[in-house]
Design a protein around this nucleic acid. Structure first.
Lengths: 183, 183
DNA sequence: ACGGCTCTTGACCATCCGGTCAAGTACTGC
DNA sequence: GCAGTACTTGACCGGATGGTCAAGAGCCGT
C-alpha cells in the first residue's frame, strides 16, 4: 500500500496503472483485487490512513500545553515535520483534492482537523491573545500557509523543515508587519 | 478553448476525452487537431493565457500606488476578485500543479508573479513598513493564504470575494495576533 | 488422502482514448 | 468554371487500462 502511494504520488493517480503497481510488487493482479475492490478504493484507503496518522502526530505534539497560541505553534511545527517525512503524501493529497471522487473523503478529514485547530484559536481569542476574527477563517488561512510553504520550500527545494516551520509560525502569528514579542 | 477549460476543470484533465470536447463544441475531431497539436498542448495554452490575464489584472489594479504595503493589498484584492470570476481556472491550476507535465509551465508563470510581489515586499522592508524576513518566503506565505482561502470560501462555499479578501488582507498583514493600525 | 478454505496467478475481455487520414466542403483569386 | 488553399469531417487504428475469471497452490482439520 505504501508502494502504491509512492507510485501514485510520482506518476499521478490516473497514469499509474494497476498492472504497474502489481508488477512493482511482484504479485499477480488477482492479489490486488482480493484485498481492494478497485483502484479507487485503494486510493481512499491510503488517504484515510494518512490523514489519521497526521492527526495523531499533531495531537501527540501538542500534548497538554496550556497556552493556546503555543499549542498552535506546536501543531504547525509537527505538521511540517510530518509532511517533510512523508513528502509523497503531500503530492498525493494535492492530487486527491482535484478529483471529485476523492474530495469528499479529503474534506471530511480536513474538517476534523480544522475544527480541532479552530478550537485552539477560539480559546486564544477568548483569552485576548488572538485578534477577534472568525476562527475558522484564521485556521484556513494558516492551513494555506503551511501547505504552500511545505510544498514550495520543503518538497520542491528540499529546505530543512525546521527553518520553514520557523517562517510559517512567524507569518501565522504576526503576518507581514507584526513584531509583537510574545511567548 | 474556454469550453475545454471548463470541461477540464469539472471532469478533470485525464477523464475528459478529446472526443468529449469536440462533441460538446459540435465539431469534428479534425478541427481540434488542426488548431492544437495535442491535448497536452491545449492545456498548456489555457494555462499560459490564464496566467498572463491574471497578471494583467493585478498590475492594472496596483496602478501607480506609491505605498508598497497598499500595493500588496490591492494585488490581493484583485487576485481574489479575478479568481472569483474565473472559478473553473482555480480548479484547473490545482490540477496542473499535480501533473509533472504542467508544473514547469505553471512554475514559470508563478515565479514571475512571485518575483513581482517580492519586489514590493522588499521595498516595504527597506521602508521599515514590513518586518525583516526573506521576501520570497513572505510572498509564498501570502500566496498560500490567498489560494487556500479562495478555494475554500469563494469556490467551495460561494462566499463573496470581497469579504474573503478582507480576511486575507488582514491575515497577511497582521497574522493571528496583529493589531497594528496601518494605512 | 481428501474436501474445503484462503490466497495467488496471469491470460483475457470489453472498453475507451489520443491521434491519423483519406475524403470531402467552402471559399478565394483568376 | 477551375485550381488551389483553408478548413472540416468522422471512421478508423494501435495501444493501453480497469477489472474478471477459470485454474490452480498451499494449508488446514479430519
Amino acid at each position: 500500500m505504501d508502494f502504491a502511494a509512492r507510485r501514485f504520488a510520482e506518476n499521478g493517480y490516473h497514469p499509474t496503472s494497476v498492472a504497474e503497481i502489481v508488477e512493482g510488487m511482484s504479485v499477480g493482479k488477482g492479489v490486488f483485487y482480493w484485498y481492494f475492490s478497485s483502484k479507487e478504493e485503494l486510493m481512499l484507503e491510503i488517504l484515510r490512513e494518512s490523514q489519521t496518522e497526521l492527526r495523531r502526530r499533531q495531537q501527540q505534539a501538542i500534548g497538554d500545553e496550556p497556552d493556546p497560541v503555543r499549542r498552535i505553534e506546536l501543531g504547525i511545527r509537527a505538521t511540517l515535520a510530518w509532511l517533510a517525512q512523508h513528502r509523497h503524501l503531500v503530492t498525493l493529497f494535492a492530487q486527491a483534492a482535484t478529483e471529485q471522487r476523492f474530495t469528499d473523503a479529503l474534506r471530511q478529514g480536513q474538517q476534523v482537523a480544522v475544527a480541532d485547530v479552530a478550537r485552539h484559536v477560539k480559546e486564544g481569542v477568548v483569552a485576548g491573545r488572538i485578534r477577534d476574527a472568525d476562527p475558522e477563517m484564521l485556521t484556513h488561512a494558516m492551513l494555506g500557509v503551511i501547505n504552500h510553504l511545505a510544498r514550495t520550500f520543503v518538497i520542491d527545494r528540499g529546505e530543512p523543515a525546521d527553518d520553514v516551520a520557523d517562517a510559517a509560525v512567524a507569518f501565522c502569528l504576526t503576518g507581514l508587519l507584526g513584531e509583537p514579542a510574545s511567548s
